[in-house]
Design a protein around this nucleic acid. Structure first.
Lengths: 144, 144
DNA sequence: CTTTATCCTATTAATTTGGTAGGATATAAA
DNA sequence: TTTATATCCTACCAAATTAATAGGATAAAG
C-alpha cells in the first residue's frame, strides 16, 4: 500500500501539473483544494523540492512549480522518495538493496525470482505513469 | 515490502513442503532450522491453521502439516493473510476494498487505473508462485 | 506419569506513520 | 518602510503497526 504521504505528494503534483499556467502555486492553495493538512503538506513539498522534483519561490507571489516537464515526472520516483523500495523483498531492489535477514541462501531463494519479476513489472508501469499520462487518463475517464 | 511475519510464514511453509515426508513437523524444529523466534512462529502457524492452510496435531508426535497439495498453496493467499491487501491503493483491492480518503473522484482518478493494472499483474504472479513452484525454482537455481 | 507437542491469553518494546507547534527568513506590493 | 504572504527550519508528539515475549492450559503418545 502507498502511504498517505505518497498519495498526498502525487495529488499535489498532479494538481500543479493541471494548473501549470498558475505556477508557482502556494502550499496553502494546494492544501485547501486537495484537503491536505497544511503543515504536513509543507514538509512533503520541501522533500519534493530537495529531490529536485519541484522548484520553490519564496515571498508574496511565491509557491511551487514543476522542475521539468510533466512527461518526465513519474510515480516510481515519487513512491521511492516517500515509501522507499518498491519491491516486495529488500534483496531485489535496485536503489535500496539489503540482504533479507530471514534468507538462508540468496542465490537459491525461490521467492526472490518471483519478487524480481513483480518488481520489474511494477517499476515499468510506475515509470510510465507520468504526470501527463495521469492527466490524460483522467481526461479520458471523465469523457465517458 | 513483505512484513517479516509474511516472510517467516512463507519460509515455514516451504520448509514443510520440502520435508513433506516428515509431516507433521513441530514448530520447534521449524523455528530452529529457519531461525524464527519460536513463540512468534507459533502464532504464525496458528494463523495459518485458522486459515486452513495448515493442519495441526497435538501431543508428543504432533506438529503441522499442509492442508492440501503444495500446488494449491500460493503466495497471494499467504501475503493477504498476514499483510492484507496486495494492491497499492485500497480502492482497487478485491478482498479489502475501501475508498481512498484522499481521493476527490474515484471514477476519474488517474492513478487508480495504474494501480489496478499493477495489482492484476502482481496477484497473477503471486498465485503462480505455489509452494511446489518455489521449490522447483530452488532446485533449478542450485543446479547452476 | 512424563515428555513433548499445540493452544490460549496477555503484555510489551521498537518502529513507522501521520501529523502539530512555533517561529525565522524572504519577497512583493501598498 | 511596513505589511501581507510565502517558504524554510527545528523540534516534538500521538496513534498505529510490527515484532516479538511470557506464562501457562490442554492434549496425546510412550
Amino acid at each position: 500500500m502507498l502511504s498517505k504521504k505518497t498519495k498526498y505528494a502525487i495529488n499535489a503534483l498532479v494538481y500543479i501539473a493541471k494548473h501549470i499556467e498558475d505556477q508557482p502555486i502556494s502550499a496553502s492553495r494546494i492544501a485547501e483544494e486537495q484537503n491536505i493538512p497544511l503543515k504536513f503538506l509543507e514538509s512533503i513539498l520541501t522533500e519534493l523540492k530537495n529531490a529536485r522534483i519541484l522548484n520553490s519561490k519564496k515571498g508574496k507571489v511565491g509557491g511551487y512549480s514543476l522542475n521539468g516537464p510533466p512527461e518526465k515526472i513519474h510515480l516510481a520516483k515519487v513512491t521511492r522518495l516517500f515509501d522507499g523500495a518498491i519491491a516486495l523483498l529488500p534483496c531485489v531492489t535496485f536503489n535500496f538493496y539489503e540482504r533479507c535477514e530471514e534468507c538462508v541462501d540468496e542465490e537459491t531463494c525461490g521467492i526472490r525470482q518471483v519478487a524480481m519479476e513483480i518488481r520489474n513489472e511494477t517499476v515499468t508501469r510506475l515509470k510510465n505513469a507520468t504526470l501527463s499520462n495521469i492527466i490524460e487518463r483522467e481526461v479520458r475517464l471523465s469523457k465517458k
